[in-house]
Structure formats: C-alpha cells, structure tokens
C-alpha cells in the first residue's frame, strides 16, 4: 500500500506565521511611535480574546455570549490581587487564568444541558450577571468608580510600563495563543470538536462524548479570555465594569466574523482590521455601530466565512494543477 497519510500540512501553514512573528518582533527596533504601539497592543490583547471565542464558535459551533464576562473576571482578578493584596503580576495572571477555566467548567456543567440558541441566551444571561455583579460589588471591584492604578508588571530590570516592552509581552502572549490553538485544531480533540459543530447526533453515534468535549473547550475558551483580560488590566491600568459587558462580547464577535470564524488567521486578521478601521471612524465614537452594525449583517449575509474564508475559497477555485504546483512549492 503506497497510501500516504494526510499530506504534510504543518510546514506550509506554519511558515507565514513565523514570518509575521519575526516581522512583528523586528519592526519596533526601527519604529518608535507610541500611538502605533498602543493600537498594536490593543489588537493583540483582543485578538487573544477572539481566539478564545473562536475555539467555541468556530470549532465547536457554540455561541458563548458570556465571553467578555470571563475577560472581565481575568482582568479584575489580576487587578484586585496586584492592587489590594500586593501580589506579583506573574502570580496573579496564572491564577486568573485558572480561575476563569474553573468558572468556565462550572458554567458549562449547567449551560450544556441546553443546546443551540438556548445555550447562547443562557450564556448571555450569565454574562449580564457577571457584569452586574462586578458593577455592584463595590467593596471588591470598586463598583462604578472602577479599579484605578493597576501597576504595569516588572520582570527583573525589564519594565513593562514602557509601550515598547509591553508590545513584546503581548506579542509573546499572542504567539503562544496561536501556537496552542493551532495544536488543538490539529489534535484528535480538535477534530472531535469540528465533528460536534458539523452535527451533534453524528458525533455521538461516532462514539464521541459530546458533553466532556464541550466542557473542555469551554475551559480553554474562558481561560483564553482570562489570559487576555489579565494582560488588559495591567496594560490599561484602570478597570470599569463596562468592558466586561455584552457589548464587548459582541465587538469580539464582530472581529471574529470579519476575520473568519473557525480559521486560524481569522481572529487576528479581524481584530486588526476592525481596530484599525475604528481609528478612522473614531469621530463617530458611540455611533460607530451605525457603520459596524450593518457591516455585521452584511458579513453574515454575504461573507459568512469572513476574510480568511474568502482566501480559502479563492485558493480552492484555482485550477487544480496550479494548486498542486503551488502547494508543492511552499
């Protein structure tokens, strides 16, 4: 039998990522623009959160509308531990991630008793409870006044209070996220998630334990939200309940849709494009959604696969000979 296993795909899909990583790492040596750093750092933080949503929506086909709530729990855990208890960020951050994963598991135990749209509504309700609790629990979270003066982390002589150094911290975090998500996607676990998205009944009859798979991907998703949230807390230095609410969830959802749900590049691409676009329509401020709302609808109507999906479709439409040649080439 000369039957080769799946063609070796790891190399061709891996190298553009390495290129991007190297470019991103080199650029700050030549460019010293704090405004650009700020945009880039924000993009990277929210891209991590978008990856967290993508493992649920893109891989398992579940719409988790409490996502910003977990982002908030991660952020507030880091904020409270460093500010009120004087913990080191490097201890508080992992703890925040573990806490988010544990709470994600708890939510999943209840939420996965429901399916599809009820699941989405259920998590939306949980998201509101999280925001409202953060908003009302004055003594812990500072309530309406928020948490002020969260210090930027230090590592030896490295001060991440400087935008340039924080850029690298965020870059490492994002690279780690993409690396791990790519691993999950290629794994037996990841393939089983895709199977669940494709049809729960078939997944079940193929012998996949749908419930435990959903629980585990929920934990991964909320852990990534907490990962991003912790980073956000020390970068911005101030936390208010608003960032943990449904509108943040919907914004992350928009990033994901623009970039391409269920793709590896989608979350980063979408966050980058919308965040940059938002810089241009900043004058609109609260009215941004006059533009972004219809954009969301048009995307769902006409480009449900997003930009990354469009790219795949264009590739797929090329003549096969050409495709094979270029695949062999890279």
């Amino acid at each position: 039998m000369s039957l080769a296993p799946t063609p070796a795909r790891s190399l061709p899909t891996g190298w553009p990522w390495l290129l991007v990583l190297v470019l991103a790492a080199v650029v700050p040596i030549f460019v010293h623009n704090n405004y650009l750093f700020d945009v880039a750092i924000n993009v990277m933080i929210f891209a991590i959160a978008a990856y967290g949503m993508n493992v649920m929506l893109g891989y398992a086909g579940l719409l988790p509308l409490a996502h910003a709530g977990f982002f908030g729990i991660g952020a507030y855990t880091v904020g409270i531990l460093t500010l009120k208890l004087g913990w080191s960020f490097w201890l508080a951050w992992p703890l925040a991630i573990v806490l988010c994963a544990a709470l994600g598991l708890l939510l999943g135990l209840v939420a996965f008793r429901t399916r599809d749209d009820v699941f989405a509504i259920f998590t939306l309700g949980v998201g509101v409870i999280i925001t409202e609790s953060i908003n009302k629990w004055d003594r812990l979270t500072g309530g309406n006044d928020g948490l002020n003066g969260i210090a930027a982390p230090k590592l030896g002589s490295l001060d991440f209070g400087k935008a340039a150094s924080f850029f690298y911290l965020a870059l490492v975090a994002l690279a780690l996220t993409v690396f791990l998500v790519a691993r999950v996607r290629a794994s037996l676990f990841g393939k089983s998630l895709i199977a669940i998205r494709g049809g729960e009944d078939l997944a079940r009859s193929a012998g996949i334990n749908v419930y435990t798979h959903k629980l585990r991907v929920m934990m991964l998703s909320t852990a990534l939200a907490g990962f991003a949230g912790g980073l956000y807390a020390v970068y911005i230095g101030f936390l208010g309940a608003a960032i943990t609410g449904p509108s943040t969830t919907f914004t992350i959802l928009l990033y994901l849709l623009v970039g391409g749900v269920g793709t590896l590049a989608g979350p980063l691409l979408g966050t980058l494009i919308i965040r940059v676009l938002q810089q241009f329509i900043q004058g609109l401020q609260d009215y941004q959604y006059v533009v972004l709302g219809p954009l969301l609808v048009l995307l769902v109507l006409f480009f449900p696969a997003g930009l990354a999906g469009l790219w795949t479709r264009l590739r797929a439409n090329r003549p096969p000979a050409l495709r094979e040649a270029s695949d062999a080439g890279v």
Binding site: S247, L253, D286, Q288, L292, G293, V297
Partner: peptide, 12 residues
C-alpha cells in the same frame, strides 16, 4: 449574529 448587528445599529 445578524440580529445582534441590527440591535447595535438601531441603538446607534
């Protein structure tokens, strides 16, 4: 998701 877009659009 489309409905969420409409929600934010109308509010804006």
């Amino acid at each position: 998701i489309a409905a969420i877009g409409v929600l934010f659009f109308l509010e804006a």
